[in-house]
């Protein structure tokens, strides 16, 4: 049965139904509905716990502790708060712990504003935290996907023992759409080989990210990168819309992909063969599909609610074979289909 839900609330309910009944977070707009929802629901669930942490730094470290026990846990925040979590995300990756972080992007830099933006792409996909690590980044484009990709995030986190971020702009958090949720989502992962549950009848487990010796550290990083390579091979996800015969390929994710879908229809009505590629995983990035389309398309246009961040991954994917242009709005302005159409026409 479909229900009308806000993105932030829908993803929270999905997380709970995926067994993530431990939530730690700190208030920040535009994602407060997540914490509020969790604070209502979790105390009523056996074994559930909600804590309003003192800072985002504490939130992510509470997640670190909670997932160390093998249970599912999550936190959420928005841009300035996600900045504070970067230390913890690096530690989660370094200690190979499965955790889900929801990032509902707002305007920046600095305090910026609370309007929707996509300017934390670099932060999410290119590190943000320190060291040689990668985080899986999922980008929903509808309230339904806010729930589906949150469930997927827990599965991928558990499967690869790696932090996973669900990243959306403020619009997706705030908007309501019909959504269909299952009663529960299975958790088939057994973490008893490493989880900290007390050394009863076994040797103690240790969770750490320290490797003092240079060769030992390098071996460990290589092991991580073998895992990241596997994730790139197996978990890259994207959606294509009318790309088969497209001269113009527009690349957009999240809410902007919906604007671009409308723009593609307008362009097709004008006789311009436009199509869209929508990355669903921002890392790993769907490079192969863009490289392939570079053989047939005339040019690419990356469209974002930022001054141009994902566009660099489009350029890297296309490898200079075709021109890659950019159209973006920022500050909380959402591009309109007409603007995207104009941006394409300008390059024809």
């Amino acid at each position: 049965m479909k229900v009308l839900m806000k993105g932030n609330e829908a993803l929270s309910e999905a997380a709970i139904r995926a067994g993530a009944t431990l939530y730690f977070g700190y208030p920040i707009t535009p994602q407060n509905e997540v914490g509020e929802y969790m604070s209502r629901r979790l105390p009523t669930i056996p074994g559930g716990a909600y804590i309003q942490a003192e800072t985002e730094v504490a939130s992510i470290n509470m997640v670190y502790g909670a997932v160390s026990t093998g249970r599912r846990a999550m936190t959420s925040s928005s841009s300035p708060g996600i900045s504070l979590m970067m230390e913890g995300i690096s530690y989660l990756a370094g200690a190979e712990l499965p955790a889900v972080v929801v990032s509902i992007m707002r305007g920046g830099p600095g305090l910026g504003n609370i309007n929707p933006e996509q300017a934390d792409y670099f932060q999410a996909t290119k590190g943000g935290g320190h060291g040689s690590y990668r985080m899986i980044v999922l980008a929903p484009a509808s309230v339904q996907e806010m729930t589906d990709l949150t469930v997927l995030a827990f599965d991928l986190a558990d499967k690869y023992r790696n932090p996973v971020m669900v990243i959306a702009d403020g619009n997706l958090g705030q908007m309501m759409e019909p959504v269909e949720l299952k009663d529960s989502y299975p958790n088939n992962y057994d973490h008893s080989a490493w989880a900290l549950t007390g050394a009863k009848g076994r040797k103690g487990h240790t969770i750490t990210s320290i490797y003092l010796d240079a060769d030992e550290m390098e071996d460990y990083i290589h092991k991580l990168y073998r895992k990241y390579g596997e994730i790139e091979r197996v978990e890259t996800r994207h959606e294509e819309f009318l790309t088969q015969d497209a001269d113009v390929v527009i690349v957009a994710y999240g809410i902007v992909s919906r604007v671009v879908r409308s723009a593609v229809e307008l362009l097709r009505a004008e006789g311009i063969k436009a199509g869209m590629v929508r990355p669903i995983t921002l890392w790993p990035y769907p490079k192969a599909v863009l490289r392939k389309l570079a053989e047939t398309a005339t040019f690419f246009l990356a469209c974002e609610m930022s001054m141009g961040q994902m566009v660099e991954d489009v350029q890297l994917s296309v490898e200079g074979r075709r021109p890659v242009y950019f159209y973006g709005r920022s500050g909380g302005n959402v591009p309109t289909p007409a603007e995207v159409v104009a941006a394409v026409r300008q390059r024809m």
Partner: peptide
């Protein structure tokens, strides 16, 4: 199909 979005802020 429906969507609802407030001008939040």
């Amino acid at each position: 199909e429906v969507s609802w979005i407030p001008s939040y802020g």
